[in-house]
Simulated scan of single mutants.
Amino acid sequence: MTTPAVRTVLGDLDPAELGVTDAHDHLFLSSAKLPGQELDDPLAAAAELAAFRAAGGRAVIQWTPYGMGRRAAELPALSRASGVHLVAATGLHQAGHYERLPDLDTLAELFVRELTRGIGGGEAPRVGLIKVAGGYHGLDPHARRTMTAAAEAHHATGAPIAVHHEHGTAAPEVVELLCGRLAVPPSSVILGHLNRFPEPGIHQELAATGAYLAFDGPSRAHHATDWRLLDCLAALAGAGHGERLLLGGDTVVRSARAADGEGPGMPFLLTGLRPRLRRALGEEQTDLIFRQNPARAFAADWR
């Protein structure tokens, strides 16, 4: 049996060394749905990482999947220069984010190749995460196909699977498909954007499955993403699910960066949100969310 490790762009890492983690963010990203708002500047990415590190951050889990401007060749140098561990992703987003999709019949092979051999270019860093996406209150054929490929890649490699939920919806359907029909262990599944659907009953049902619940993208200017965030986290922790919770910044457009935009950017998790969590939930639960839970959620017994 292998020892669990977090697969970073600089190699496999002992989970205990991951440190304070932004569990969902982006240094580089481009989308057909967001023309002119690309994250594509390495200097700006370096500045954002430096600000995150100065605030006490030690790791960033990137959810930018295949075909969305990952600029993977830049990542090893950025990690070394900043002293921040970086995890890159393979996977596929909703079809609307792409001008051209890859061959859907060979998706699992693509995911496995990037997980085991790396992304082409530069130092060919390997990825440590599979990112897929559901739809609004349901799963269309594209989502089911990509999740099936993600499950095949998980079974071949052990990689964790992170899921975008449109406005926080369709998470029960995702769990039923991934963890039920496709037999992915819930502990290898991270359910994203649940702060956008602040329904405590559903959250507790999801946490009870053993999946990780990611609350990400706080303080968005264009919609409410954290108006009940602390209440949801407190309810889950109070119900005994404190070990299933993750937090991320999910910076997806240039204007949302702290270093060269309007913010709040990556540092806000630690400068703005973490003090509120300490007051509301206590130091022990806050440490679980930022350090211990990510160390378990993004580690895998790699095959």
Rank of each mutant, 00 (worst) to 15 (best):
A156Y: 08
R291T: 12
A239P: 11
H154D: 07
Y66R: 12
I61D: 01
A207Q: 00
L101H: 01
L236E: 00
A183D: 14
Y136M: 13
D105W: 02
E152S: 15
M266S: 13
E166K: 14
V174C: 06
R254K: 13
H85T: 01
L247M: 14
V60D: 08
R228W: 11
E99M: 07
L18P: 00
H142W: 12
G91K: 01
P294T: 09
H164R: 11
N195A: 09
R254M: 09
H93N: 15
L49H: 02
R100S: 15
A16N: 10
A44Y: 02
A239C: 11
L34K: 04
M266R: 06
L182K: 03
S219P: 00
T225W: 04
L49C: 08
G134M: 04
T2Q: 11
A89L: 10
L191H: 08
H85L: 03
H164N: 12
S79L: 08
D12H: 13
G96M: 06
A95D: 11
A256N: 00
E205S: 13
D260W: 01
A5E: 11
V6R: 01
G265Y: 02
G57S: 04
D41A: 09
F298M: 10
L78Q: 10
L269N: 02
H193D: 00
A208R: 13
A54L: 11
A256E: 11
E283S: 09
S30G: 13
R257C: 12
P65D: 08
P125N: 02
A44D: 14
K131W: 05
L194M: 14
G56L: 07
G67W: 02
A170E: 00
L277R: 04
D216G: 03
R53K: 15
G96Y: 08
G210I: 03
T271L: 05
L194E: 11
H142L: 12
A211L: 07
A45I: 10
D140W: 02
G240D: 10
S31R: 03
G217N: 05
L281A: 07
G122Q: 09
P294Y: 06
I130S: 03
P125K: 05
L107V: 10
A224P: 06
D250T: 09
R58Q: 15
G282L: 03
A46L: 13
L213T: 02
R279V: 10
R7E: 02
V9D: 04
A153R: 04
P172Y: 09
V20F: 04
A72E: 06
S79Y: 03
T225F: 06
T271V: 08
E243C: 07
E199F: 14
P267S: 12
G120W: 05
E48W: 01
D216R: 07
E17C: 13
L229W: 00
A300Q: 07
E17M: 12
V84P: 01
V252S: 06
C232I: 06
H165A: 12
Y136D: 14
L43G: 15
E152V: 15
E176D: 15
H137D: 13
W302R: 08
H24F: 09
